[in-house]
Amino acid sequence: MEFKRHSPLVTRISILVATIVVFAFVVAADNRSYMLILALLVAIIFQVKKLLNEVEGKDVPLSSFFDSIRFDEITQTFKADNNSVTVQKLQRELNEALSKLKQARKEKDSEYQFFKNIVQHVGIGLLTFKRDGSIQIMNSAAKRVLRVTKADRVEDLKVVSESLVDTFLKLKTGGRELLQLKFGDETVQLSVFAIELTLRDEEVKLISMSNIQSELEEKEMEAWQN
């Protein structure tokens, strides 16, 4: 079935594609506005409903396009089984929209990997966990100071010290505490600091920790020499 080059269908799909692209960039932004995200989501749903009503019975690859977004398969492309110039144009626009969504995700993933590498290589121990106790990040320094290789939940660290876990859970933003951990014959003096954050409407606690045993020993040595 043929469509006019400047038909309402072409205009409606163009607006929908633009809205989806804007939605993707707003979601990926650091200073995202949740009110704007909600408004764009409502606009997309409304446009999709109107568009589906309009293209019912026409050979346009919209179902494939929406399935790609719904099932998070934006790496694929699709082709319409129609030689209509207008349909082919719509196909190019939809593939271009998927390409922009893919690029936005790629940039977001690159930024995430960049900051993840920074966190993993800093000298101070860092650990983040959600309200339910599930650990999101535990960098290499934290694993070294706690003598663990893996922990999925804060409770898993009870094998190191129950008082350590209690401290992690009770500390509030700005809270600081000194802990003494025993690893065989070795004693570790641990300085723990906490910050509570909200990330995407979810409460997260950031714990920083450092072994100050060597600093204490140096001060004791200086005091003894004086």
Rank of each mutant, 00 (worst) to 15 (best):
M1Q: 12
K4Q: 14
R5S: 13
R5A: 13
H6M: 09
H6D: 15
P8R: 05
V10L: 04
V17E: 10
A18N: 14
A18W: 06
A18C: 08
T19P: 01
V22L: 13
A24Y: 06
A24D: 14
V26L: 09
V26E: 15
V27I: 13
V27Y: 12
A28E: 15
A29G: 13
N31G: 10
Y34D: 13
M35D: 15
M35V: 09
L38H: 11
A39Q: 12
V42W: 04
F46S: 09
Q47K: 06
Q47H: 10
Q47T: 03
V48H: 01
K50H: 05
L52H: 03
N53Q: 08
N53C: 03
N53A: 06
E54C: 00
D59A: 04
P61E: 00
L62K: 00
S63V: 06
S63L: 09
F65C: 01
S68G: 03
S68R: 08
D72P: 00
D72Y: 04
E73A: 08
I74N: 03
T75M: 04
T75E: 10
T77K: 03
K79H: 10
A80T: 05
D81C: 05
D81Q: 11
V85Y: 09
V85M: 10
K89A: 07
Q91T: 11
E93Y: 08
E93Q: 12
N95T: 05
E96V: 03
L101V: 02
L101E: 03
E107H: 02
E107P: 01
D109R: 02
Y112F: 07
F115R: 04
K116P: 00
K116H: 07
N117I: 00
I118P: 01
I118F: 01
V119E: 05
V119C: 04
I124E: 10
L127F: 01
T128S: 11
F129C: 02
G133L: 01
G133V: 00
S134Q: 06
S134Y: 03
I137S: 07
M138A: 04
K143A: 06
V148S: 03
T149Q: 11
A151M: 03
A151S: 02
R153N: 09
V154T: 05
E155W: 04
K158E: 11
S161A: 02
V165C: 08
T167P: 07
T167M: 06
T173A: 08
G174L: 08
G174D: 10
G174W: 11
G175V: 05
G175C: 03
R176Q: 15
R176V: 14
R176I: 12
E177H: 11
E177L: 06
Q180W: 11
Q180V: 14
K182A: 13
G184W: 13
G184N: 15
T187K: 14
V188K: 14
V188E: 08
S191T: 11
V192N: 08
V192T: 14
V192M: 12
F193T: 12
F193Y: 15
I195C: 10
I195E: 15
E196R: 15
D201W: 11
E202F: 05
E203V: 13
E203A: 15
M209V: 02
N211V: 07
I212D: 12
Q213L: 12
Q213I: 05
E215C: 00
L216Q: 13
E218D: 05
K219G: 02
E220M: 11
E222F: 13
A223N: 12
